[in-house]
Computed example of a mutant assay.
Amino acid sequence: MSDHSRPPRRSPARFAAGASALAAALTALGAPAGADPAQERVLGGAEEGAAPWAVALTDDAGHQFCGGTLVTPIKVVTAAHCVDGRDPAALRAITGRADLRDTGGTDGAVGGVWVHPEFRDVTEGYDVAVLTLTAPAAQQPLPMAEPGDAEPYRPGKQARVYGWGRTAETGSSSEVLRSAEVPISSDADCRAAYSDYEPGTRVCAGAPEGGRDACAGDSGGPLVTDGRLIGVVSYGTGCGRPGTPGVYTRIAAVSSDVAARL
């Protein structure tokens, strides 16, 4: 949300480097009454191998800044704002490593970066990019939503967001992959939170009461339902604030363009 990187949240700003999604990985469980929703999230860490297609993007010094999704053995879908203007040689795509302190999984070099040609800014849509790895990853890819798919975006539909981002607006990023369940929001609710929101290539998701959301460091990460990638963490306002769902790139709206790069 632009605040988080969701500044993009998930942006290189809320994301300032990919900022939004995982505050998303926080699930409010048994928080004390009156607790700050941004602190209530107790993200459910994904078990090793539970999300083998979840990708941690790091710079060449090993610092994680965004997320992504393995959609073929050599292709990773992420947010355009995470990689626009970056040198592919300075990027690494880590798959199969839920705990970034470990050394398992695949540490993949990036040979090429495609940014959607209509991307201008996170708030204008088309916030999607495809990375090409120099060698196949061993992990299982995740299928994408297809053009015309509507059910995954039905308001109230439960989805799950994944990432290694902050677990609170002012907290630190997580070393362990986390996830949170977030319901798909209606376009009307999205527009109420973001006056410039237009559906098309975007979709919102988040609990109306707050407490579950993506956050800085989660940008580019996956929004998943029914075993398919339906969204990419793009931007938002804060992390887990009531009435301010996260904004995601709607994969069904750009899957044809993405598929052409696979």
Score class of each variant (00 low, 15 high):
residue 218 D to H: 02
residue 257 D to S: 12
residue 236 G to N: 11
residue 251 I to D: 06
residue 140 Q to A: 09
residue 45 G to M: 08
residue 224 V to D: 01
residue 127 D to N: 12
residue 98 A to L: 03
residue 143 P to A: 03
residue 211 G to T: 02
residue 248 Y to V: 06
residue 164 W to K: 05
residue 176 V to E: 11
residue 91 L to S: 07
residue 56 A to D: 05
residue 154 R to P: 15
residue 35 A to K: 09
residue 117 P to F: 13
residue 31 A to I: 07
residue 204 C to V: 08
residue 195 S to M: 04
residue 26 L to F: 06
residue 93 A to L: 04
residue 70 L to P: 03
residue 24 A to L: 08
residue 126 Y to N: 14
residue 56 A to I: 05
residue 89 A to D: 12
residue 215 C to N: 08
residue 9 R to Q: 04
residue 110 V to S: 02
residue 112 G to C: 01
residue 188 A to M: 11
residue 220 G to F: 01
residue 217 G to D: 07
residue 254 V to A: 01
residue 26 L to G: 10
residue 136 P to V: 13
residue 242 P to K: 13
residue 57 L to K: 03
residue 1 M to R: 05
residue 207 A to R: 12
residue 181 E to T: 01
residue 143 P to V: 10
residue 27 T to N: 02
residue 30 G to F: 13
residue 9 R to E: 02
residue 45 G to C: 04
residue 65 F to K: 06
residue 175 E to D: 15
residue 13 A to L: 09
residue 174 S to T: 10
residue 216 A to F: 08
residue 181 E to M: 05
residue 246 G to S: 07
residue 231 G to F: 00
residue 143 P to R: 04
residue 180 A to C: 07
residue 24 A to C: 04
residue 205 A to Q: 06
residue 104 G to N: 09
residue 62 G to Y: 07
residue 107 D to Q: 14
residue 10 R to A: 00
residue 154 R to G: 10
residue 114 W to F: 10
residue 2 S to C: 08
residue 30 G to I: 02
residue 129 A to Q: 09
residue 6 R to A: 02
residue 257 D to Y: 06
residue 256 S to L: 14
residue 83 V to L: 06
residue 32 P to G: 13
residue 225 T to R: 06
residue 87 D to Y: 09
residue 227 G to P: 11
residue 226 D to H: 12
residue 161 V to I: 15
residue 237 T to W: 00
residue 236 G to P: 02
residue 175 E to F: 01
residue 215 C to G: 14
residue 139 Q to F: 00
residue 212 R to S: 15
residue 56 A to G: 09
residue 246 G to I: 10
residue 46 A to L: 11
residue 182 V to S: 14
residue 164 W to H: 05
residue 172 S to N: 11
residue 26 L to I: 13
residue 97 R to F: 00
residue 220 G to K: 00
residue 199 P to D: 04
residue 28 A to T: 12
residue 173 S to M: 13
residue 133 L to P: 07
residue 59 D to M: 14
residue 48 E to L: 06
residue 59 D to E: 10
residue 218 D to F: 03
residue 22 L to I: 05
residue 45 G to E: 13
residue 227 G to T: 14
residue 249 T to M: 13
residue 245 P to A: 04
residue 103 T to P: 10
residue 194 Y to I: 02
residue 198 E to L: 10
residue 246 G to D: 02
residue 161 V to G: 12
residue 175 E to K: 15
residue 38 A to F: 02
residue 64 Q to M: 12
residue 200 G to E: 06
residue 222 P to T: 07
residue 99 D to G: 12
residue 184 I to P: 05
residue 142 L to Y: 04
residue 146 E to C: 09
residue 46 A to V: 15
residue 179 S to C: 00
residue 144 M to E: 03
residue 89 A to T: 10
residue 60 D to S: 14
residue 75 K to Y: 00
residue 135 A to D: 11
residue 225 T to P: 08
residue 186 S to P: 10
residue 18 G to A: 10
residue 1 M to G: 10
residue 184 I to F: 01
residue 215 C to S: 04
residue 152 P to C: 05
residue 250 R to Y: 01
residue 194 Y to W: 06
residue 156 G to S: 13
residue 146 E to H: 04
residue 229 L to F: 05
residue 7 P to E: 14
residue 182 V to Y: 02
residue 182 V to N: 11
residue 2 S to H: 03
residue 99 D to K: 08
residue 20 S to M: 03
residue 196 D to C: 02
residue 128 V to W: 08
residue 81 H to A: 14
residue 162 Y to N: 01
residue 211 G to Y: 07
residue 11 S to Q: 06
residue 125 G to K: 10
residue 220 G to S: 00
residue 212 R to Q: 11
residue 145 A to F: 03
residue 241 R to Q: 15
residue 162 Y to H: 08
